[in-house]
Design a protein around this nucleic acid. Structure first.
Lengths: 236, 236
DNA sequence: CATATAATATTTTTATACAAAATAATTTCA
DNA sequence: TGAAATTATTTTGTATAAAAATATTATATG
């Protein structure tokens, strides 16, 4: 494999990526915007299952040419949200109720593992961030600001994903967490569930603070199981 | 969201996808071929970490234009094998030793979950397939045909991924299994490990046959833990 | 000589053009 | 009328061209 001239060190790559939130989803290119838009629309059920995604249709709707649309669709295929039949078309597969159920069961293990690993890499700064998130979440739960509660739930989990310092685990948990955002919105809009969630987050944080990996894993695992139970109760 | 005319049912999508092995990686388009080629090259360390992937360079090397190369690189970004810095370039991140370590720990849980779910959907046909795979694997292990042993290990695990009937779990386990192929090759080329692996596969199969989900989960989990131990012993 | 600035060259990003494949419509013939 | 063949149309796949961004080199100035 012939070498090419310019290279980036691992740190440079990481920092560049960080500055754009999320490699795939940068807002600064048309492709990124189309990707985000389509992804949201699919996850929030704006397309029917099996619906065909035509490049020109989407392009003209978003005011861009076929090229960025094509690239976005190719990426969505890899995310499993779209199925491409060569020379035929791209069809929305989206996320089924069963997929969501499965994701929660998968997450129940992986959030546990993530919390355990987080104990090994937690810093004072991140502990304070997590504290603040929970503090704010309790405030907004009291006030019934569900939009903010969801946002803070995002932040709490994503902070732990960062802290576990595993590119692989972080990547997959971020995706899954995003996939179930629609359902989490519903779940956390119930006062009782939101309160329980805060309590569970606090317990997880304490376990991480004391670097009790085994306990953190158990609590994070149970946190997701509780969520599953709650979803079942809502008939979701 | 305005409806479009033609649609595919879920079954049609699935069957179409099946016929092309793996949606993303179809061999029948230039993009698919470029994607597979680059992925292999990255996973097998033919690119250095941080190396820049220039569209024209790769395109001319593979005899295609920049378009399919771009699409392939965009997909690899989503797989986490490449980092894209907008307006600058694409850089190989690849898979580190730590990533592989992490993947095995993640798999230890997910293979367990997969085996448990497989118990609920296993059929007579699939049981026979699995039996045959193990039988052949023992044969090739005796003969020292390591290439075939790896191939059969692939088949054993991927069959169970299918049987668990979870699009999500199957998707993620397939990816991970592929990511660690290089290391598995090394691991299974040790006669002792290959033999143990066969024994463990047999035990998992028996648990699935008797639909003992709890046992199947435990055995599949331990199977991966054993592999981790073995890798550690080899200093990998 | 060093540094800042302008000019040039590369490379990515997006748009468009053309070719290939698939689908739909029409015609032809029994 | 109805089925098969043919033609049109539509859509994807690939290549190339134009635009925007970035990196590099050269030049001028203190």
């Amino acid at each position: 494999m012939d070498k090419e001239k310019s290279k980036l060190t691992e740190n440079e790559i990481v920092s560049e990526r960080k500055s754009f939130q999320n490699g795939a989803a940068d807002q600064y290119s048309l492709r990124g915007r189309v990707f985000n838009q389509l992804r949201e629309d699919i996850l929030f059920g704006k397309y029917e299952k099996g619906e065909e995604l035509r490049e020109i249709t989407i392009g003209s709707r978003l005011g861009v040419s076929r090229t960025p649309v094509r690239e976005a669709i190719r990426q969505l295929e890899l995310e499993g949200l779209v199925a491409i039949v060569p020379n035929k078309g791209a069809y929305v597969t989206g996320i089924s109720e069963k997929d969501i159920h499965d994701i929660y069961h998968i997450r129940s293990y992986l959030e546990g593992l993530c919390a355990r690993w987080a104990c090994e890499h937690i810093t004072k700064e991140k502990l304070e961030q997590l504290e603040e998130i929970i503090y704010l979440s309790e405030f907004h739960t009291e006030k019934g600001h569900w939009e903010q509660v969801v946002e803070l739930d995002n932040k709490f989990h994503e902070t732990i994903y960062e802290v576990c310092e595993s590119k692989m685990l972080e990547h997959i948990l971020r995706d899954f967490h995003h996939y179930v955002e629609r359902v989490r919105r519903i779940s956390l809009a119930q006062e009782a569930r939101a309160k329980h969630s805060n309590t569970e987050h606090k317990a997880i944080l304490e376990a991480i603070r004391t670097k009790d990996g085994v306990l953190a894993e158990k609590l994070a695992h149970e946190h997701i199981i509780q969520t599953i139970d709650n979803l079942n109760r809502c008939g979701l």
